[in-house]
Design a protein around this nucleic acid. Structure first.
Lengths: 220, 220, 220, 220
DNA sequence: ACTTAAACGAGACGGTACGTCGGGTCTTGCG
DNA sequence: CGCAAGACCCGACGTACCGTCTCGTTTAAGT
């Protein structure tokens, strides 16, 4: 999510260079502000984070903040969204290994204090602001479904999982799987505050892959 | 969670009547405040909730609030915790039906705006305040594990699930199951903001009970 | 000014002893409260004086205070008025000596910090509350006019001052003299904050007795 | 007395223009606040005067008040001090007339409710705060001694009063005269609450100029 | 000794103002 | 025109006292 120019929303592809009059905006300021935001967020949490403080940390005037982001919400979304770009799924040879790998990545990400504070703060604000919630889904959550999608593709390619023909059925299936995996890790780390270590991950995948709740799969 | 007496934390079982000096605290005020808090929370969310406003709604002086709860956090924990006392698991004849029933109850609870706002706000604050997180676990989250415990007992009694001998293994198993179920519903409703309707619940239980990810359970 | 019984103002002359039922009021409490008031007043001034603090200093419940005095005003008037009862005029052989003596007494009284704080606080409140001002006049200021009255009587007896026949003229004369003497000392000590030492007193009496402003009394 | 710049007390003569960064303070706000303060003071007195109320009357935020004056004291000193700049002494042809004139001016000033409340409140606070008392003396009281000084000069020029050679003796004489005149009027109007009408002024000057206490000046 | 009723301590109560802090806007002068 | 600085309006914060109100407990006078 790129810094949002306030007065004039520039087009996605700026074909006309639009020879900006006057002094151009400082790119360094953008970076400094986002870094300062993440730092302050990790230290103080959403409630403790103040625009004035971010401005001071970034060595920037408050005006400059508001010129780029209309409010705390959007600033923090931007500051946090980028963290999730690093998640990747690699073909590790088996469905179990692939899941374990991506869950571990997610767990690593959520282990950072700033991620915890930032995400929960966003989710909390999102519960009152449908627009913000939509932005969170679109920019932060939904993009990660690609991981499930790709992982499933690998499994199908390996023959571990049959290729369901129906596309919408697959989409819904992906949603459920994603809800379940993401939710379990989130609950474990954000709500309970316990680490999702390899042991936990293993047990969780056991449950997910049927060696869990009704092991032996007796009457299913 | 009962109103926390500020200066002197009395023991859980007060054998000594503790001859209260001075005018006793008004029980009506306690009730009015908690009700007002839940109401305001639903209307305005955590960020919009003001102590002054709660006081006005409760027909109570601001000082009376602060005399009982040192901060918004504690007040909201108290106000919200009671909502979870209503969850129950009934023996509906099959493991699937039991799970579906309790998930539906949980979904109903999280469908209320005040629950969403309150829980997420608490979780967010909890990420910065280990003490608060502990209180959330102890007073709100962990007590619900009884549902899994009882459900599992029913299933064992019915012969749907073998009785694992090891007690600690069972405890860990319960934790994982709880993390997974609670996490999935939380993610669905609190993060994504989508309803956990019967269709979703069914698919989710499919996944949980092996008719899901690797349906047919080929090589497990 | 005696402690004012609140609910029932007893008649000035209690012919019927009014056989008090129940526990009688503690005289010790009265004294403790007035002492505590004077002490607190000297330390903290009117603005800093709190009823709660006075109660604590006096080892008494706040209720006990309010049972006797309806407000801070009346309490402080009572607490302060007694200080002025000690002023006396002695026949020291000459008008000048008599005046010097009583002015010195007044200066000693106003030299105490609690007198300064208390009086000025009362005067200040009195400027907004005509009733209080009246009470101040009647209970604190006017009673001291007896000093001028007696001093003048001594001077007439000595033949230093002719006996003006008209009673009302004398009364007005006394008022003026009192305003002048009291005012000068008050201004010197309460407003300016300088001591009224013997040198100042001497010069002041010079001015008052004609060796002052137009010394030599040329054309009078 | 000018509004006191809070963070940096600039020198009396700012030779360096002190290139002010940021938005300059609104001069209109200064005026509005001082006017509102005088108005509120007259209506409500010191005790009733609220910073919040002053802010509302001045159409200004409370923070703007506190940015300029650290407390009620300083604000009211500033608001009131200017009232005293209007006192003047004119050469009316005789010492008696000159005195009568300036006393009448002083009486007019003290007849305004806001002057009474403000002055007494200041004096009261001054009794506990030596710094404030010093500021009162320097900014409000002492400057008025010029009136005595000038009046005396006129009298000497007219030959009504002999020119005392010693400068310090004259200074002390002025102090005494000022204490006496100011004190009498203050006592009359601020303490007693009676008007200093022409009749009273005449009698007072009689006393001051020897036709008073020992009229006829028999043995002086 | 027993009754009775007011005084008492403690402290909770509804209020009001306090002085501070953060949000978001506006107004300067400089580059 | 961007930018730093900082004043501005607004509104919530948590605290301190106010004067009132219950409580349960003395404490003396009258029986």
């Amino acid at each position: 999510m790129a810094p949002t120019p306030q007065p004039a929303t520039q087009p996605a592809t700026p074909p006309a260079p639009h020879r900006a009059k006057g002094r151009p905006r400082s790119a360094a300021a953008d970076r400094a502000i986002l870094d300062a935001t993440r730092e302050a967020l990790a230290e103080l949490g959403w409630g403790g984070l103040t625009m004035g403080d971010v401005a001071v940390r970034a060595g920037v005037a408050k005006t400059t903040l508001y010129r780029r982001w209309p409010s705390k919400n959007e600033l923090v979304v931007d500051a946090v969204a980028s963290l999730f770009d690093e998640l990747e799924i690699a073909d590790r040879g088996s469905l179990r290994a692939d899941i374990a790998d991506v869950v571990a990545q997610f767990a690593d990400l959520l282990a950072r204090p700033e991620s915890q504070a930032a995400l929960l703060a966003l989710f909390a604000e999102g519960s009152r602001d449908p627009q913000l919630r939509r932005r969170i889904r679109e920019h932060i959550v939904d993009p990660q479904k690609r991981l499930v999608h790709e992982g499933l593709a690998h499994a199908v390619a390996r023959g571990e999982v049959p290729a369901d023909g129906d596309a919408t059925a697959i989409a819904e299936q992906i949603d459920i799987i994603f809800d379940t995996i993401a939710g379990a890790v989130e609950h474990r780390m954000l709500v309970i505050g316990e680490p999702a270590d390899p042991v936990w991950i293993n047990r969780f995948i056991d449950l997910l892959l049927n060696q869990g709740l009704v092991s032996g799969c007796p009457g299913c």
